[in-house]
Nucleic acid binder design. Sequence first.
RNA 1: GGGUCGGUAGCUCAAUCGGUAGAGCAGUGGCCUUUUAAGCCAUUGGUUCCGGGUUCGAGUCCCGGCCGGCCUACCA
Length: 495
Amino acid sequence: MNDKDKKTTSDNEVLDGSDQFAVRQAKLNGLCDSGNDPFAANWEQSHVSKEAIELLGEDEETGSDVSVAGRIVAFRLMGKAAFLKLLDRQGKIQAYVRRDEIGDDEYAAFKKLDLGDFIGVRGPLFRTKTGEVTVRAKEYRLVSKSLRPLPEKWHGLSDNDQIYRQRYLDLVVNEESRERFKSRSRIIREIREFMWERDFIEVETPMLQSVSGGAAARPFRTHFNALDCDFNLRIALELHLKRMLVGGFDRVFEVGRVFRNEGLSRRHNPEFTMLEAYQAYSDYRGMMELTRSLIQQVAERALGSLQVERPEGEVIDLSGNWREAKYKDLIIDAVGIDDWFELPKAEKLKKTKAMGIEVDPELEDFEVTNDVFEKVIEHTLVQPTFVTHIPKELCPLAKITQSDPSTIDVFELCINGQEIAPAYSEQNNPAVQRESFLKQVGEETQELDEDFLLALEHGMPPAGGMGMGIDRLVIFLTKAANIRDTILFPTLRPL
RNA sequence: GGGUCGGUAGCUCAAUCGGUAGAGCAGUGGCCUUUUAAGCCAUUGGUUCCGGGUUCGAGUCCCGGCCGGCCUACCA
């Protein structure tokens, strides 16, 4: 195509090193010409890095033969010998290669390896002067050539755009990121373990839905050619999991992706992972115990600690029982007015303005109050807090509190200044459910899910239900600053 | 969507008031058989995100666009 690319076709041409792709391509071509296609190679691994390192006892200087493999992430050549670091799924292991041990020809080829290449190394373990367990190579093999240079070894990759668009590079060079995604996987595994231990069954429900309900969010729309009809991507798991309760699966959960057609922010990605769990014959109090135990067990098993230090230094303490606070009490405390809930909307607006909060005057009365919660209170709830007795207008899928008909049987768990998990005593009266759906349909661009109401009319056991934003859980458990740091491939504008 | 800050070598970053675009790492050539961001010598590499404009002269100033960070808006 251009002059630089022409270089790659000729080994005889002198490469000045200015085009690293061309240099590497030429090395690869040279190998292929001599009958060694590295992409055709494989390698028998006897140990992964961490296992191999642990083979050598504290007081041992040398050990048995191992065979390891990985990507070269450090290469220190010192004339007739070299040290290199191989990165595999468990971490890094050092290898030591000497010309007098692998032979002159092999060593000449070895010197042409590049950072980023995958190789296998076989030989005995030994301990270096500084005590690092190292594989002394009797044999090595290039098993895959890397044609492009890795990001800088010390600073890693810091350009956000590139970190998200080329996550694989971030994972190779940034250990913090690598560890965070291992933690995420472990957290989700421990969530499943916990639910199984509690006798829940994991199910999978449709992502493509003709009516998307269970939350008030705008859906993504798509088209199904075979039936020539439009579908929505799901915005919640709720309505299908409740159908499972109707069907007699009285403890069910699902961990899955939901999609909401909303903006991006530090806390929002349009596709994110939810856990929803429904337990028949329980209620929101039961879900409170379940949710607390779940997070405690997951933190204990996945991280080994119930204390999580925030980047700012404050320690989130997950141990013991957690604080409970009534929504109304938190509001009254924040605004400093005992009869806040009796004030007309105009007075509330005056007060919020005096507090320096911008509130849209078109909002409903309860929405003004909820703005106070979201803008003033939520970010202060760093230690785990169950917010209870939430106004009924905010949750159309829950039961009314017997002792206070203005509120519903629900909690909203806040940790790290964010909503993590709401839970309800689920509404199972089909008539009441229809009524609150109809109200919602009137207010928003929601459609009525008649199929779900039909299911309810067949009878759903009383149940507690809980939904948890897994990404937000991972944010605070792994000390991430941004939801995008917890999602391998976050949604980005296509280039 | 709005505000704001940014985009310079493969990567991490400099570049004074508008005056020859630099460094470290990586690469290339050489020395070096226990290194730890290995070291030493030499050296290649630039559409300064893109397109216009002002100017004798633009990485720098102006306008438009693209992409992103942060804040904000939408958000059970």
